[in-house]
Design a protein around this nucleic acid. Structure first.
Lengths: 336, 336
DNA sequence: CCTGAAAATGATACCGGTACCATTTTTGCA
DNA sequence: TGCAAAAATGGTACCGGTATCATTTTCAGG
């Protein structure tokens, strides 16, 4: 119907064709139930005939509601976050919300600039990963007067709500488990400790568990590397070269898989020569040989809960709870 | 400065504080160079003092430019797309564009609904994966009068521009390589053939190469499964159970890695007992043991080119070329 | 058939930016 | 120093929806 160089049809055009006022056309399009079915049909037909596409910028401006939920993740490559994101997205779609996703690359500055643009776009809610933010970011979020959810780590004083697991407890459990198996020299491979409260808490849990077992914390056994397979492999290589060790706990399966493959390459027997444990329960963890002992994290449940909290807040429901501990499980497999 | 329950400051508030007109304040904020530095400074100070956050919905409505580039990917979990997405994002950020990402889950219906919302949000350009779309989607895109880029596969008749590789040629090369090594019974594991032109072209390339080697195409050796490690492993298990075969070519490293791990689990020697080849050159491909022979795809280059094409089009530059073949490489490693 | 309340529809204005064009100020140069 | 051109600034209107409140229509019940 419309031709290439026509301007887009507006709600006024639709109204004219349908023979109603613009505001009635608007109500009909939103299916608000305030319009007689016959009228609605006329409007819908007119809209179809004109290839009408509503302009959400105008709608956002008028209603002060963008139907956008902004999500900030540390990176694109970790499939853990992808799963959570997917489940947030699935849970919000039916309510008419769309995700606006940004990646902070673990940089507080980048995170701040993302928050700024999300506020500019008038996101209806903002979901962040972790609770380490710049002061400016905290100030922006506090004055924003929209629902804020921090996910993946727990925090007694969240900006808004907070949905995650106790990274400390999980790491403590795993380290405790390794020590319980008789390992005395347990290494730790962490990812990007700076600005990453998840890894930081996991390291703390590791330290605490060693102490509980009256074992010395040897700083030489602790590695802080980027978050890729290669880095896990390299860190494992270094640990093996420089130290005698029984076991390694990696704060992410990506690193653990890299470490495991490095052991394979060196023909080390896992877990006989060295035990390897991970964190996240990535899909590959149970397929690799030997299968990887790791921490299972309810990543889809986290996403669903985040979406639930956001929706409740957007509906204006009074909050009953601000901190949601989604729990973890120790998944015992063959590698440790 | 601003208090919790105040309304957001608008450009008029800023203008008032700065002692200029709203339009001057607007120009100052955009740093358009049309404002005297002293004036600009007054406005910037006022904005800071008021915690001014521009409303991009209003800006979009006024200028008919959202500074959003929409990207549709098949799924969130394939890190290949994540790399391309990252490089599109990096390349566009400096020009002030933000990505709006959607996942079609290989469903043309979902893709269509994504396109609809993206048009509603007045995305300045739309990037899609592949060239199989619903008729409605094609019509929507054609009448949208914004730059459209299809990526990852090549297409003589793209909607707008198209940046990718020849999936047919790449699969042909790999199959040819396998046959050249003397393999006679080569299986194929593909992901979601329906609605996925990449996998479909790869299958075509595989068939053509077999024919060129005067080998029978055995439909029993062709598996169409979802795109996860587990599915690759299961498909490999089935192929091994039902057939005698020398080699397997998987249309994605995810599937190939699953297949390889299944071989490991069965203590089959790769490549002696069976050769395995993949497609994509995922990060794990060179770490796994044996390392995976695969097709290297310039995924970052694809993203950069996509961004370049989009930017050129948005700047109104005349197109010199519509189809960009970014090439591939056959990465020979240990598994085949 | 009439009446009053409820339902449906409409007129107007507004959301918060910026385009367009008019006006004022500054600047370069004779 | 004066003047034309360029630069800076401002007034008004508009982008395309919808909130608000007023008005008209519908409908149940007497």
């Amino acid at each position: 119907m419309r031709h290439r160089n026509d301007k887009r049809a507006t709600i006024r055009d639709v109204a004219k064709v349908a023979g109603v006022s613009p505001i009635t056309a608007s109500r009909a399009m939103q299916n608000s139930g305030k319009v007689r079915p016959a009228t609605r049909q006329k409007v819908v037909d007119a809209a179809r005939q004109l290839d009408y596409i509503p302009n959400l910028a105008a709608g956002t401006l008028a209603t002060n509601a963008s139907h956008l939920v902004a999500v900030i993740l540390p990176n694109m490559s970790n499939s853990i976050f992808a799963d959570t994101l997917q489940s947030i997205s699935d849970s919000l779609r039916d309510s008419g919300y769309q995700l606006l996703v940004g990646y902070s690359d673990n940089s507080p500055e980048l995170e701040e600039s993302l928050v700024r643009t999300f506020l500019s776009r008038r996101a209806d809610a903002i979901v962040l990963t972790g609770h380490v933010h710049s002061d400016q970011t905290n100030a922006l979020l506090k004055s924003a007067a929209i629902p804020i959810v921090e996910m993946w780590s727990l925090n007694d004083e969240p900006l808004g709500a907070c949905v995650g697991i106790s990274n400390f407890d999980a790491a403590y459990s795993m380290t405790d488990y390794l020590c319980g198996k008789g390992h005395q020299k347990v290494g730790f491979i962490g990812g990007l400790l700076k600005n990453n409260d998840r890894t930081q808490s996991r390291l703390d849990g590791y330290r605490a568990a060693l102490k509980a077992h009256k074992l010395q914390v040897d700083e030489n056994l602790i590695r802080d590397v980027p978050f890729e397979f290669e880095d896990g492999a390299r860190a494992m290589g270094e640990l093996l070269a420089d130290n005698q060790l029984d076991a390694v706990f990696a704060a992410s399966d990506i690193l653990a898989l890299g470490a495991l493959l490095e052991c394979n390459r060196r023909n080390l027997r896992v877990p006989e020569d060295i035990a390897v444990a991970g964190f996240d329960d990535e899909r590959l963890a149970k397929l690799i040989k030997p299968s990887l002992t790791t921490i299972g994290v309810p990543r889809r449940a986290i996403g669903e809960k985040v979406a639930g909290v956001v929706l409740a807040a957007l509906r204006g429901e009074a909050e009953t709870q601000r901190v949601f501990d989604m729990g973890f499980s120790l998944v015992e497999r063959d590698s440790a």
